[in-house]
Computed example of a mutant assay.
Amino acid sequence: MTKRFGDTVALDDVSFEIPQGEFVIVLGVSGSGKSTLLRCMNALETPTEGEIRVGDDPVTSPRDDIAMIFQQHNIIDQMTAYSNALTGSLNRNSFIGSLLQLQDESDKLQALEALNTVGLLDEAQQSAKRMSGGQQQRVGIARALVQDPTILLADEPVASLDPGSSQQVMGYLRTAARKRDLTAVISLHQVNLARKFGERFTGLRDGQKVFDGYRDEFDMDVIDQIYGDIDTEGMFAADPDEATEASGGSTDDASSKRASSGGMAK
């Protein structure tokens, strides 16, 4: 797949396949093509050449089974965490019905379950504007889960968060993906978070894919391939001791996932 914006080549002949259920981290400096790749996967941008496929189906318009989490969580401050999560069911309900919270009981239970998945069930009735940035991003994850996707995309979901909140959000993302067998593609710039949570890694540089592999191949030589002469020290955010077992568990070997079928193709 290639994507051009005028004379600028944002993605240059990028091709790969993701088996169902894999947790993929996309790495690269600003301008490397990470956001454009995710926006093409969600049909927010149209490839100039090539295509995105889910199974055998080309992605030509936004799909209910692909959910997107943005760097800015875009939740509604005046609403509660529960009400925000419930808006994930808009694809199944009318706007007026959603505004009046006339959704089916199953949708309401799904919203509560999603909040429980991201550790916010006790804060379900708390106003979003009274929540921390990390909590607000977790509400955004819950909203995406209520959409009931099979593919979860997240574009720099922790870029504006402190290191501790970043680890929590990444832990909950991984927990949600495992619990629901979601195919997840997450763009990051923090290398240490990628190493901590990723199963598979795709590196972009100047719009080209320079690496695509698994944990056992992801070493400092690969990081140099992706980032070149840029000093990567600042990308290794602090790694506090309150770690991720409570918010996502340890990273398992991804080898069992490699044999899975389905997922998102080139």
Results as ranks from 00 to 15, higher is better:
158 V>I: 06
187 S>H: 03
164 G>E: 13
188 L>Q: 07
203 G>S: 09
125 Q>Y: 14
200 R>N: 05
129 K>C: 14
200 R>A: 03
146 V>T: 06
177 A>I: 09
190 Q>W: 08
162 D>W: 01
151 I>C: 12
122 D>P: 12
206 D>I: 00
120 L>P: 00
135 Q>T: 02
124 A>K: 15
149 P>R: 04
154 A>P: 06
193 L>R: 05
209 K>M: 15
132 S>A: 07
188 L>K: 04
159 A>I: 06
203 G>E: 10
130 R>Y: 13
130 R>H: 14
156 E>D: 01
160 S>R: 08
145 L>A: 04
179 K>C: 08
187 S>W: 01
127 S>P: 13
191 V>K: 11
182 L>H: 06
203 G>Q: 08
140 G>K: 09
193 L>F: 02
197 F>Y: 08
170 M>D: 11
171 G>D: 10
175 T>W: 14
205 R>I: 05
152 L>Y: 02
189 H>Y: 04
183 T>S: 04
120 L>E: 02
134 G>R: 02
127 S>C: 13
159 A>L: 09
160 S>T: 08
121 L>V: 14
184 A>Y: 02
127 S>R: 15
177 A>R: 14
188 L>I: 04
127 S>D: 14
136 Q>I: 07
183 T>H: 02
157 P>N: 10
184 A>F: 03
141 I>E: 06
122 D>N: 13
169 V>L: 01
139 V>G: 14
190 Q>S: 15
152 L>F: 04
188 L>N: 06
181 D>Y: 11
159 A>E: 08
144 A>F: 02
196 K>A: 14
150 T>D: 15
148 D>I: 11
163 P>R: 07
172 Y>P: 11
159 A>S: 15
169 V>G: 05
162 D>T: 01
134 G>L: 02
162 D>F: 01
160 S>I: 05
128 A>T: 09
120 L>R: 04
135 Q>C: 05
180 R>E: 12
145 L>V: 00
204 L>P: 04
126 Q>H: 14
186 I>V: 04
161 L>R: 11
144 A>S: 03
138 R>V: 05
209 K>G: 12
177 A>G: 13
194 A>D: 04
148 D>Q: 14
206 D>C: 07
161 L>F: 05
154 A>L: 07
181 D>P: 09
176 A>I: 01
121 L>A: 14
153 L>W: 00
205 R>S: 13
138 R>T: 03
160 S>M: 12
126 Q>S: 15
172 Y>Q: 13
138 R>H: 07
145 L>H: 04
202 T>S: 13
202 T>L: 15
141 I>T: 06
158 V>E: 03
163 P>L: 05
185 V>A: 02
128 A>W: 05
190 Q>F: 10
196 K>H: 11
179 K>E: 15
149 P>E: 01
209 K>D: 12
167 Q>H: 15
128 A>R: 10
